[in-house]
């Protein structure tokens, strides 16, 4: 993996970056063909924090999120430029395997998407097996730990062989989170993870986010501003592809600097 710092400062630079920022987004542009969906976004994400991306539909927040683990380029005709530096490593470097990036930077989607033909256990262990893990004892341990970390273990521990699809919507979403956690990601991207859930399911996911940030850096896209205010430490407001304002959640929701941010979060447009 290529390190982007000068070689003589490499170790120090990596250490400093790791201490200060887990993810550095530098002049990132996201394109769909010739249409630029996000423009020159710069943003630094601190380790073990929750950062929320908010903004009206079409502002580019999901595109930006998908740029952070190179999912964006899987859309036909889409590409990104700029740098996304995770622990000092530019994930867009030509030498980087996107599959490895997606292992380190997990993702949870808007709608729960368990593998439909797999059991609860297999849903969580699928990624491990695909990555060559064969030790059944270790797999079992990781599955249990992941389900516990996703606050689902107590509800499914006696039904691990049942289909993943047999769970409720909220449980399915936590199953997907467990599946992502099984890969022991350092960063977890969540794209509107509660938009299809009822209030109880949503609140469990929100509680989970607060717990998970002790170990994982979380970036969450949400349309629900109260959710952003509840769960995040930092908030980025985007509008028409631009990052308008980024700051502590308290500052953004109590005293935003930009008039546009104020108007959006106050429900005066969007």
């Amino acid at each position: 993996m290529a390190i982007e710092e000068p070689i003589e400062d490499k170790e120090e630079a990596v250490q400093q970056t790791a201490e200060r920022y887990k993810v550095r987004i530098e002049k990132v542009n996201g394109w769909y063909g010739s249409k630029r969906a996000i423009r020159d976004v710069n943003l630094n994400v601190k380790e073990k924090t929750v950062t929320a991306f908010i903004g009206p539909s079409g502002c580019g927040k999901t595109t930006l999120l998908r740029c952070l683990n190179r999912m964006h380029e899987m859309t036909p005709g889409a590409h990104a430029d700029g740098r996304v530096v995770v622990d000092g490593i530019d994930i867009y470097d030509k030498s980087i395997d996107p599959v490895i990036i997606r292992r380190r930077i997990g993702m949870v989607f808007q709608k729960p998407n368990p593998f439909p033909t797999m059991s609860i256990f297999d849903n969580v262990s699928a990624g491990l097996r695909l990555n060559g893990m064969n030790n059944k004892t270790i797999i079992r341990e990781i599955v249990e730990e992941s389900l516990r970390n996703a606050a689902l273990w107590d509800e499914v521990k006696n039904d691990l062989d049942n289909p993943g699809m047999s769970l409720s919507g909220g449980q399915q979403q936590r199953l997907c989170i467990a599946r992502a956690l099984a890969m022991q990601p350092e960063v977890l991207l969540m794209d509107e993870p509660t938009s299809s859930l009822d209030p109880i399911g949503s609140s469990k996911i929100e509680e989970l986010v607060r717990v998970l940030k002790d170990n994982v850096t979380i970036i969450i896209v949400t349309h629900n501003m109260q959710q952003a205010a509840r769960v995040s430490d930092f908030t980025a407001f985007m509008y028409l592809g631009d990052l308008i304002e980024y700051g502590s959640t308290n500052q953004i929701f109590m005293n935003p600097e930009k008039e546009l941010t104020e108007r959006y979060i106050s429900g005066k447009f969007g």
Partner: peptide
């Protein structure tokens, strides 16, 4: 209404 920013202030 969970007001924010100036509304909340």
């Amino acid at each position: 209404y969970q007001p924010v920013a100036r509304d909340l202030r």
